[in-house]
Structure formats: structure tokens, C-alpha cells
């Protein structure tokens, strides 16, 4: 790898930007593919790029054949992140479950009685208001944002901030009725129907979950489904 490409990979990782290094196993020539650009020894053909982007999306490195060439795609994605708004009972289950699934988890809640180290051991806590917290955390395309407070004062600003970014998953706790009311409030805040449709609500796969841990499981399962492109995405 040329030193220049190595430094470019390091910068991407520092900035938490996804990249893929494509190596021609025949010639050793390499190209670094960014979200919307490429650089390196040789420019990849437009026809080849969708395969690279699919590998990035699936988080799957591997060898691909393109015409008579054999290429290795190294996917270098930043860790997945989960921002939980609301240090509530469900969050106490969802945070450690998501850590096991490989997520960097941050719990946002200005109510310190909820967002305490005792309730969330080894989880990053943020006590700012959700809109400020999200502005600082900058959710990207590999970040999920889930609002769990039930309190519009906290959930709504979090959702508005999340919808302004490219988060792969945005979810909000609440019944269908609660969600309908949320639609009206967010419309007043300038969130149109297509933006609102990105919110998974009622949140989680319909497993018939009852306990906080089961609801947490249904949310994590839906995050995986959306991320990995399983069936019925966008329900």
C-alpha cells in the first residue's frame, strides 16, 4: 500500500468515514473508495463501483472477479453506533445487548437520576438535551438513533435532529396512537411525511414483546434487519 493511501485510510477512520480498499491481486494496484469519491493508483470503472459499495453496505470484505481481474475489497467501516435517547428501563436492556452486537452505545438523558453510572455501568452517558447531544454526536450512516423517553419534550427534538442526518435507523417508542400524535407535532416542526416515514414506530419488530428486555430485543432485531437488508425493511 502506498503511504499516501495508508494515510488516507487513517484519516477516514479518525473521521469515522467508511472506506474500502480495492486491491488488484494481479498487479498490486490499489484504489481507495470513499462514499462519493475514489483515489489511488488507478480509477475503478463505474461498472465496478456498485460491487464495492455493496460490500461496504454489507460490511463484508472479500474477493470479487471483474472481467479477467481478481480484486480484493477490504471494507474499513467505522464501528456501528447506537444513540439511545432516554435512560429508561428498556434502555437498560438495549444498551448492553447492543454492545454485544458490536455497537458503540451512548445514552442521552438530561435527567441524571435516570442516566446514572449505577443504572448503566460501562455505557457512555450524555446529560445534554437531546438536540444538543445529537449535534455533538453527529449520527452518520452507520448510526441508529432510538427515542425511548415517551416524553415529547425529549423525544421530539431528538427525532428532528436524527432525521436531519443519514442514520440508517431511527426509532421511537410509542403506540400507533402516540405515533400519530407525534406525526402532527413533527409536521408542525417542519418534518414532512417522507421524512417522518423514516421513523420506525411503533418501534421494533412485532414479536409480541412484553418485558423491557423483550422490547429491547425487538428493537435490536429490527436494527439488524434494516442494516443487513433483511425482508420487510421500512415497515
Amino acid at each position: 500500500m502506498k503511504r499516501r493511501l495508508f494515510e488516507a485510510v487513517r484519516r477516514a477512520q479518525a473521521d469515522k468515514r467508511p472506506v474500502a480498499l480495492v486491491t488488484d491481486l494481479g498487479t498490486g494496484l490499489q484504489t481507495l473508495v470513499h462514499a462519493d469519491a475514489q483515489e489511488g493508483d488507478v480509477a475503478l470503472e463505474e461498472e465496478f463501483l456498485p460491487q464495492v459499495r455493496e460490500a461496504m453496505r454489507l460490511d463484508r470484505s472479500g474477493i470479487v472477479e471483474f472481467y479477467d481481474g481478481r480484486f480484493f475489497i477490504t471494507v474499513l467501516n467505522p464501528p456501528l453506533r447506537l444513540i439511545l435517547v432516554g435512560a429508561v428501563h428498556i434502555a437498560q436492556s438495549l444498551a448492553p445487548m447492543a454492545v454485544l452486537a458490536g455497537y458503540d452505545v451512548t445514552v442521552v438523558d438530561p435527567r441524571r437520576a435516570f442516566a446514572s453510572d449505577a443504572r448503566f455501568p460501562d455505557i457512555a452517558l450524555n446529560h445534554d438535551w437531546p438536540d444538543e447531544a445529537l449535534a455533538a454526536l453527529k449520527p452518520d450512516a452507520r448510526t441508529a438513533v432510538v427515542a425511548l423517553t415517551h416524553d415529547p419534550k425529549l423525544d421530539d427534538p431528538a427525532l428532528v435532529a436524527a432525521l436531519a442526518g443519514p442514520s440508517f435507523y431511527v426509532g421511537a417508542l410509542g403506540s400507533r396512537r402516540t405515533h400519530a400524535q407525534r406525526r402532527e407535532r413533527l409536521a408542525a416542526a417542519g418534518i414532512d411525511d417522507s421524512a417522518f416515514a423514516r421513523i420506525h414506530g411503533p418501534v421494533g419488530l412485532d414479536l409480541g414483546a412484553v418485558t423491557p428486555a423483550e422490547i429491547a430485543l425487538s428493537i435490536l432485531a429490527q436494527m439488524v434487519q434494516v442494516l443487513r437488508g433483511g425482508p420487510k425493511v421500512g415497515t
Binding site: 495508508f6 487513517r10 477512520q13 460490511d59 464501528p79
Partner: peptide
Amino acid sequence: MSLLSADSATVLEQAAIWLA
């Protein structure tokens, strides 16, 4: 696989230290 990515970042960080 995200853990794998985090792991790669650690390896490349060490490589950068050696290069420096």
C-alpha cells in the same frame, strides 16, 4: 463485523506508530 472494523483501526494505528 463492526468489531472487525474496530479491530482493523487498532492494527493500522499500531502500523502508523511504527512508520512514524
